[in-house]
Design a protein around this nucleic acid. Structure first.
Length: 150
DNA sequence: CTGCGAGTCAAAC
DNA sequence: GTTTGACTCGCAG
């Protein structure tokens, strides 16, 4: 069962669900054709709309499908999911808590298929912003939504 | 301030 | 095997 959510923001944010688990999040200039059936998808759409209008929303209760990723990436992304709304951590700090290196963390984050749901934008460089697979301006705006500025 | 080299480690080639 | 980063640190100019 495949479902699609598309909500308007500075760009359209498109979320693809498979069997009520998030498999992919993308950003685009035009909306995706929606297909919303399950209660999970309905509730997620509402949560996304609330989040992008500036409300504090926690996505950690939604299921995510990470089966195509390596073990290392899964471990990193799981750790990232525990970062609370409105707070940030550096690549270095994440690396230290997982006994690896900042660059390896960056590699793993780049492979995050579901930005926002897995809040990889809350991981920043020690001095500055770091990068973002969907574009650095998206990351900056996500942080601003959560009341942070860099 | 800016630039460069080295350390680091998973992924990609 | 070698190269390449969503990084960081230290040390020159």
């Amino acid at each position: 069962m495949l479902e699609v959510i598309s909500v308007r923001w500075i760009k359209f944010v498109n979320v693809v669900l498979k069997d009520e688990r998030v498999v992919k999040v993308t950003f685009s200039d035009n909306p995706f054709y929606e297909n919303i059936q399950s209660n999970t998808a309905k509730s997620l759409k509402q949560d996304l709309e609330r989040y992008f209008s500036g409300e504090k929303v926690d996505f950690s209760s939604y299921g995510v499908n990470l089966s195509e990723l390596s073990d290392f990436v899964r471990v990193v992304l799981n750790e990232v999911r525990s970062i609370p709304y409105g707070s940030i951590i550096t690549y270095k700090e994440l690396a230290e808590s997982l006994n690896t290196s900042p660059r390896a963390i960056g590699q793993a984050l780049k492979r995050n298929p579901t930005p926002v749901i897995i809040p990889c934008h809350r991981v920043v460089a020690k001095n500055g912003l770091g990068g973002f697979s969907a574009g650095i301006e998206i990351k900056r705006e996500l942080l601003r939504l959560e009341g942070l500025k860099l």
